[in-house]
Computed example of a mutant assay.
Amino acid sequence: MILEALGELKEPNGSEVATICNFIEQRHEVQPNFRRLLCAKLRRLIGVNKVEKV
C-alpha cells in the first residue's frame, strides 16, 4: 500500500507522511492506529533502501 501511494502521488520533493496516510485511508479500510504503523513501516523501508528519505 505504501509503495502504491508513493507511485501514485509522484510529488517532486517526496511525499509527507500525512499525505501518504490520507491517500491510503481514502482507498483502504485501516486500523485506528494506522498512522503509527505507517511511520514504523516507512522507517523500515528507508532502512532497507526500498525508499529514500529526502
Rank of each mutant, 00 (worst) to 15 (best):
G47Y: 04
L3I: 15
E52P: 00
N33T: 08
L6P: 00
P32Q: 10
Q31E: 14
H28L: 14
G14Y: 06
L6Y: 09
V17I: 06
R43W: 07
L38H: 04
L9R: 02
I24Q: 03
K53N: 09
L6V: 01
N22R: 15
P12W: 03
R44Q: 11
I46D: 11
F34W: 09
P32H: 13
E8G: 07
V54Q: 15
C21V: 05
C21G: 00
L37M: 11
L42C: 03
K50G: 07
I2H: 01
V30E: 08
C21A: 03
V48F: 13
V48E: 01
E52W: 12
L45G: 04
N33R: 12
R27N: 10
N13T: 10
K50Y: 12
I20D: 03
Q26T: 11
H28P: 05
E4Y: 11
H28N: 12
K53Q: 13
V54W: 08
P12H: 05
R36Q: 12
R36L: 14
A5S: 04
L38C: 00
K10D: 15
G7Q: 10
R44V: 14
E4T: 10
F23M: 04
N22H: 15
E16Y: 11
N49G: 04
A40V: 10
S15Q: 05
I2A: 02
A18M: 10
V30H: 03
I20W: 13
R43L: 09
Q26M: 11
A18V: 03
Q26P: 00
K41R: 13
V48A: 01
T19S: 04
N49F: 13
K41T: 06
V51W: 02
H28V: 14
L45F: 13
A40R: 14
A40E: 11
N13Y: 09
R35L: 06
V17M: 02
K50R: 06
N13A: 09
